[in-house]
Design a protein around this nucleic acid. Structure first.
Lengths: 230, 230
DNA sequence: TCCTACACGTGAACC
DNA sequence: TGGTTCACGTGTAGG
C-alpha cells in the first residue's frame, strides 16, 4: 500500500547516516578499507553530492517562483499576506480585465472593415435632443465638410467628435445636439438617410480612385490619424 | 545536522507501520488488548486521520494553484509546457505592460489640472509644415470656434483633432498643416501666442462664471466628453 | 485541538 | 549521465 515508506527509510539510513559522518572525511579515511568498500563510499559520495545539488537546485527554483509571485503581489498592491492561490486568482482576473479593456478600446476607436452607421438617441429631458452618431466608411478629403453640411442643414450642433483614420478607412463618432422645438421623432430617420447617402458617395469615390483616376491622397492613407474636436 | 531524518524514520514507523495494518481493523481487533494499548491505537488512529486530512488538503491546495497557473497559461497563450517560473515571469511582464498602457492612455487623453500649451513642429520635407498642437485649459462653449478662427487666420488646416472634456476642463490635441510658402520659422511663435491669449480668455471666462454669473453649461461639466474630428 | 498555508526534501520523468 | 521541472508527503507556524 505504501511501498515508498520502506524505501524512504532505507534511503534515509544510507544517505542520511553517511551524511552525518561527513562526505569529505570518507575519502581521506578510506585508503585502508577494502577496494569494494572504497568504491561504495565513492559512489555514495557521488550520490550524496547529487542529492545536495538537487536539493539546492530545487531551493533556487522555489525562490525564483516566489520572487515572481512577490512581484505580482506588488503590481496588484496586495498585502504580503495574501496566499498564493488567492493572489493568482486575482492576477487571472486582472489580466482578463486589462485584456478586455484594450480590446474595447480597439473596438470603440478603430474603423471597421465594413461600412456602418449607427445613430442613437441619448436625449435627456432638458429641452435638447442628443444624438450619438457613429459611422465607418472609406476616407476622403471632403468627408468632414459633407458631414458638417448635413448637420448644419438639420440645424444640429456638434458638441463632440472623434475621428480615426487608418488604412484609408475612417471611423467617426459624433455627439450632436438640437433644440427639441425644431425636431421630432423623425429626425433620426433624416439623419440616418443623409449619412447613408454620404457613405455611398464615399464608396463611389473609392471605386473611382481605385479604378484609374488620381493617386493623390495616398500619403494620408499611411499610419493612423486620430482626431478629436468639439 | 539533519535531525529531521531520524524523526522522520521514527514517524514513518509509527504511522506508516500501523497504516499497513489498516486503521479500521485496529479498533475491531483490539478489545482484548490492555487499555493503554487500545488508547494508543485510538490516538494513532486520530493522528493517522489527521495526516490523511492534511495530505488531501495539501493536494487540493496544489490543484487550486496549478489551475490558476493554467488559466494564466491560456490567457497569455503560452504552450502548456512553459514552466512555472518562466510563465510567472511573463505574467509579471504582461501586467506591467498593460498597466503602463492604460497609464499612457490616461496621460495622453485626459486634461491636466494646469493650463498648458505645446506646439511641436512635425514637418517632413514634402512642402508642408505640420504642427502638433496640444493644450489644456478651462472649457467654454466658444473655445473651438476661437481655435478655428486662429487657425484660419494663420491659413492652417486641421487634419486631425482630439478633444476631451471632463470636469469643466478640456484637452485639445490638433494636427494642423500649412503650405511652406506662406510660413516661416516664426509661425510657431504666432501660433503659441495666439493660443496663449486663447487660454487667458478661457481662464477669465471661468472667473466670471464662478464669480457670480450664469449657471448655464453646468450640465456639460459632468462626465467625459471625448470628441475627434478631421 | 483542528485547519490552513508555506517551505522543504525527495522520487520520478524528461531532455 | 547530469541538469531541470514537477508532484508529493511531511514538518511547522499562525489563527
Amino acid at each position: 500500500m505504501q511501498p515508498q515508506i520502506s524505501d524512504q527509510i532505507l534511503y534515509s539510513f544510507l544517505t542520511g547516516g553517511f551524511s552525518a559522518s561527513s562526505s569529505t572525511t570518507t575519502t581521506t579515511t578510506s585508503p585502508f578499507y577494502p577496494f569494494a568498500i572504497e568504491e561504495d563510499t565513492i559512489s555514495q559520495d557521488r550520490a550524496l553530492a547529487a542529492l545536495r545539488n538537487h536539493k539546492e537546485a530545487e531551493r533556487r527554483r522555489r525562490e525564483r517562483i516566489n520572487s515572481h509571485l512577490n512581484n505580482l503581489r506588488n503590481l496588484l498592491s496586495c498585502k504580503s499576506k495574501t496566499d498564493k492561490a488567492t493572489l493568482l486568482a486575482k492576477v487571472v482576473q486582472r489580466v482578463k480585465e486589462l485584456k478586455q479593456q484594450t480590446l474595447e478600446i480597439s473596438n470603440e476607436t478603430l474603423p471597421s472593415e465594413t461600412d456602418e452607421i449607427n445613430v442613437e438617441d441619448c436625449s435627456n429631458d432638458d429641452g435638447r435632443i442628443i444624438f450619438k452618431i457613429s459611422f465607418c466608411c472609406e476616407d476622403r478629403p471632403e468627408l468632414l465638410q459633407d458631414v458638417v453640411k448635413i448637420l448644419k442643414s438639420l440645424q444640429m450642433e456638434t458638441v463632440y467628435a472623434e475621428i480615426t483614420t487608418i488604412g484609408g478607412r475612417t471611423r467617426n463618432d459624433l455627439v450632436v445636439v438640437a433644440d427639441i422645438e425644431q425636431h421630432g421623432v423623425e429626425s433620426v430617420k433624416y439623419l440616418q438617410n443623409a449619412l447613408k447617402s454620404l457613405l455611398e458617395r464615399s464608396s463611389q469615390s473609392v471605386v473611382m480612385r481605385r479604378g484609374g483616376g488620381g493617386v493623390e491622397r495616398s500619403k494620408r492613407r499611411r499610419g493612423v490619424d486620430h482626431i478629436i474636436m468639439v
